[in-house]
Amino acid sequence: MSVTERKKVLVVEDNELNMKLFCDLLGAFGYEAVQSRDGLKTLEIAREHKPALIIMDINLPEVSGLDLTRWIKDDDDLADIPVMAVTAFAMRSDEERVREAGCEAYMSKPIQMMPFLNQVQKLTEREPVQ
């Protein structure tokens, strides 16, 4: 598979180790991970890279991932990019809030690798892994 065929996935995550995990996971399964550690710069980065999917941590330092998602969904250029929320909050009301904000999918940490990859694949409309 050539590099140009790899689909880009933008990972918005402020925790280094988690960022590394998502990048390694995505890299190992044939995606190209683009990183954003800074909530406020995410829109800029998304515009630049046009990712096939955004993986969004909800609990970010400056701005909540939910607000970020709302801005993305309000933006004509970016609204079509699916957003998968990933959060370590495991409260039932959170899933509702995540859906309301416009996220297409929701996963709670700790993630299970296979469901996570299946979801990524579904949202980026890739051919099945292997």
Binding site: L17, N18, L21, L25, A88, S108, K109, P110, M113, M114
Partner: peptide, 20 residues
């Protein structure tokens, strides 16, 4: 709990990745 889960993510994720 949130912080603990956040840190469990790389632990369990990397074990999965090794096993894969």
């Amino acid at each position: 709990g949130h912080e603990l889960r956040n840190m469990l993510n790389p632990v369990s994720g990397y074990s999965d990745l090794i096993l894969s």
